[in-house]
């Protein structure tokens, strides 16, 4: 039941996360910042714009991105296998990158290509994270993970940090926002969307927020307070890093993910597995 409600309201939760994030970001820069509901004002404004598009295929891919991101979240909440949900997430990347590739705009195509490099960077970490959760709690089932008595974070500290390192890549936050790179390629895959179609992409990003932070929440296991604390701490940490670092190029992102994050995750799982024997 909670799962269904979470799924239905996930765009709203994601919007709130995004609003809070903007405020927190502003406060960190000692600004006042927009109201917390700002993302929703943006939402209504974008709905009210005259729709324009490059071509129908591109516009439809924006909508498909939103739908498949939402569907992936539904699979995460309503299904009982974490791994499947992670693979569903790739469908939304497919829709986004296909749409971005389909227009003859250099920025869009570069952005789509970088989006794929993002995928190559974070996806192995996320899969290893799921496997680590399985190893720690004995199940891929979310309800089992959320009712396990010992929190996975205590057995998977390195893996957790690897996952936190991957979050900026998943959510396009600095220093790993090469796909969006607002000053360089002006939003990358999003650039050609406008009005209601951009609205779909914008909302899809909110759902990705919820998706990622829910995965963080799972590290708390049955201890929901710990889970909530992890989410808040991760959120603040990611925002702080976002504010205080400059963008790295994609090779460095790839190297960081492959040389540091993946070995970290593998070592954690390795030692946990051997210790359990």
């Amino acid at each position: 039941m909670i799962g269904l409600l979470m799924t239905i309201f996930s765009p709203i939760i994601g919007g709130l996360i995004s609003g809070v994030e903007r405020v927190v970001k502003a406060r960190m820069q000692s600004r006042v910042g927009p109201p917390i509901l700002q993302p929703f004002y943006d939402f209504f404004k974008l709905m009210d714009k005259r729709p324009i598009m490059i071509h129908s295929f591109h516009a439809s891919m924006g909508v498909m991105y939103f739908i498949s991101a939402w569907f992936a979240f539904a699979v995460l909440m309503l299904g009982n296998d974490l791994l499947i949900a992670v693979f569903f997430h790739v469908i939304s990347i497919l829709a986004l990158s296909m749409g971005a590739f389909s227009v003859r705009s250099s920025y869009s195509i570069i952005g789509a290509m970088r989006e794929l490099i993002h995928l190559a960077s974070y996806e192995p970490v996320v899969i290893l994270c799921v496997v680590g959760l399985y190893l720690s709690t004995g199940s891929f089932d979310i309800s089992v993970i959320l009712s396990s008595s010992n929190a996975p974070i205590f057995t998977l500290p390195l893996l957790f940090f690897a996952f936190v390192g991957a979050i900026p890549m998943m959510l396009h936050k600095s220093p790993f926002d090469v796909a969006e790179a607002h000053q360089e390629i002006i939003g990358g895959p999003d650039i050609e969307y406008s009005g209601p179609f951009y609205e779909a992409v914008y909302t899809g990003r909110w759902i990705e927020n919820v998706f990622v932070y829910f995965l963080v929440f799972l590290f708390g296991g049955g201890n929901f307070i710990l889970g909530a604390f992890l989410v808040v701490a991760t959120f603040l940490l990611v925002t702080l890093i976002d504010n205080s670092t400059a963008r790295l190029d994609y090779q460095r992102m790839l190297k960081f993910a492959w040389v540091i994050l993946i070995p970290m995750a593998v070592f954690n799982i390795f030692f946990l597995a051997l210790g359990g024997n």
């Binding site: 502003a26 000692s30 600004r31 714009k49 607002h182 650039i191 050609e192 406008s194």
Partner: peptide, 22 residues
């Protein structure tokens, strides 16, 4: 855009992209 005046108070963002600007 900076901290002193902060026009993001009004929800204003500098997008740099005509398709999403008002």
């Amino acid at each position: 855009l900076g901290p002193k005046f902060d026009i993001e108070r009004f929800g204003m963002l500098n997008r740099g992209n005509p398709k999403q600007s008002d």
